[in-house]
Design a protein around this nucleic acid. Structure first.
Lengths: 341, 341
DNA sequence: TTGAAAGCGCTAACAA
DNA sequence: TTGTTAGCGCTTTCAA
């Protein structure tokens, strides 16, 4: 039972002190036009004198909006806390909201209880829209929110025909470009460390790898592909170890994420191989490897800042307009040799 | 203009469908006692049929509570995202709220704009209480919230006589114990890598170091102490380098955080010294060093789970009771030789 | 340009 | 055990 302490001045008291009607005070605090300057100042003086702060529950109830959006993080996202991928997105989202009156709320959804509570929170009107960080094909949250008519924007998609608004990077294209680059530098035996294939993002990146090989006229060898259970470094390490065991002649690897790539590099170091003199590794994303790599690891950079901004733009649009089905935005990626961090 | 779509059923419609009064429906959705079982079921059926979801703004307005608390992260905290210190606290806080109807909201306060917006949000009654992660002596936020009468609990304190409720670890005691341990193992020339001394936590840990030396009858040598500008690994690296330069005979170091300690270890490795055969390093906190250390680094463990739980407990108490000045909780620390990660 | 008044959908006190 | 009613503090017509 916290909340605005009893005794908090109300708009009505401000109106009384300023000698105006409630409507006028409302116009002033909402910066609405049509208030004489002298009146506005008088009201502002009264507000300052009383230390008035608008009651947001009342405003929501009357105004039918919360002036807040939620960015939901699932357990999986949570592991990415601290990684540039995550922090850059959140920072970009925060920046994009800076000039609006919209408060950004990060929420953690780890369990069914938390999911239920959040859905009640959101459907209850405490937020005007929801940003979803992750894309677990099995996650019921996107559909729950969409069904409830809540403006929702996802980062990434769950499948090829996603029916919720999303922003995604050109994963297949990025992967294709990366592997093409390896082929052009003369590599022929190129392994792939894939992410879990029940995630669409992993599927796309692996597809890009295959397309590049085909384009380059190199036969695909299934034993050159290892599917990881997740995107972690540990998985990358194990995948690389098994890859080298099977294919000592390996001269390049495409990893579906930077953490996988970092693990792969480490495994290479452990068996005494050098990068890229003996083996080249190409990652994805824009994560920095846990440890500096020298020579640098080449990666496919996602425009994280743009992704965050685009998510906010789409969300605000959905919040203003009436629900017009959904929209998708795919952003281009870029191949970079990253500086040793 | 998102929010609960127009056409959302209201409590009144549920009451009508169930053939009962509004009060009864309210009692059912709030799990209040004093409703006949058959009535309750009838209401629940109506709720399900209509897909009713309570309007939280209306509930807040009438009920004078938000059923939400905010955990505020400042820019500095944000850098700790992903580190066990941070994630453990957040998880503990989330767990502690699991059996309550309270939604946890993480908010990012990086700029004055964001601070102002958040204060309006909080003072506007959208949260019932606030948890503060960090303790920057100069941060005006704690006092702003306290002055507004909002239940507030800080992790750590800004000075020796903190007037806002907080939970802290026994930093001086932990440091004292750590350095005593070094002395007892025969070390005599013990350096200290301190955090920025405008943070109370750093001051306490340095004080503990000095107290231990005094207790052990070892004269304090100011040139054995390096004050870092922050708690980062890089700072630890530089501090250790300068320490070794000045005192090649150094046989132990107390670092004010695990990141500092990790940096120190790295610097030791770079100059070809071993740990702990030549030099022992003791850190603080419960962070895992970025890289495994072998032999293990001894550290002072803070009970992070307990800290998070204690924060929630205090906050809920402050939310229920009338403001009774403030309360402080100091938790014991524990010296551990950590397993190689 | 301003004031008055009608809700927004709920909780809680009071009656019945 | 249940229905009725009076607000909670704001936004937003509609008049003036």
């Amino acid at each position: 039972m916290g909340r605005q302490r009893p005794g908090t001045p109300t708009l009505e008291e401000v109106a009384a002190l300023a000698g105006v009607g409630r409507g006028t005070v409302s116009r002033v605090i909402n910066n609405a036009a049509g208030v004489r300057d002298s009146t506005r100042r008088a009201v502002q003086r009264a507000i300052a004198e009383l230390g008035y702060v608008p009651n947001l529950a009342a405003r929501s109830l009357a105004g039918h909006r919360a002036d807040a959006v939620a960015l939901v993080m699932t357990e999986t996202d949570w592991r990415m806390f601290g990684e540039p991928f995550f922090t850059e997105i959140v920072h970009a989202v925060g920046d994009a909201l800076t000039d609006t009156p919209v408060q950004l709320l990060l929420t953690l959804v780890r369990t069914d209880t938390e999911r239920r509570r959040f859905v009640e929170y959101a459907r209850g009107g405490r937020v005007d829209g929801v940003l979803l960080m992750s894309v677990h094909a099995a996650d019921p949250l996107p559909d729950m929110l969409a069904k409830a008519g809540l403006p929702t924007v996802m980062l990434g998609r769950r499948s090829g025909d996603e029916s919720v608004t999303y922003v995604d990077a050109d994963n297949a294209g990025g992967a294709r470009g990366a592997v093409t680059y390896l082929l052009e530098s003369g590599r022929r035996t190129i392994g792939a460390i894939s992410g879990p294939l029940d995630m669409y993002v992993a599927e796309c990146r692996l597809r890009g790898y295959r397309e590049a090989l085909e384009l380059g006229g190199v036969a695909a060898d299934p034993s050159l592909v290892v599917e990881g259970d997740d995107f972690t470094e540990e998985t990358g390490r194990r995948a690389m170890t098994s890859l080298i065991g099977r294919h000592p002649e390996l001269d390049a690897v495409f990893a579906a994420s930077d953490t996988l790539a970092a693990g792969a590099l480490e495994a290479l170091g452990a068996v005494g191989r050098r990068v890229p003199r003996d083996v080249a590794v190409i990652g994805f994303d824009d994560l920095h490897p846990a440890r500096p790599t020298d020579p640098p690891l080449t990666t496919v950079r996602q425009p994280l800042g743009e992704i965050g901004r685009a998510m906010v733009r789409l969300l605000l649009e959905e919040m203003e307009e009436s629900p017009v089905a959904w929209r998708h935005v795919i952003l281009r990626t870029e191949l970079v040799r990253r500086d040793t961090a």
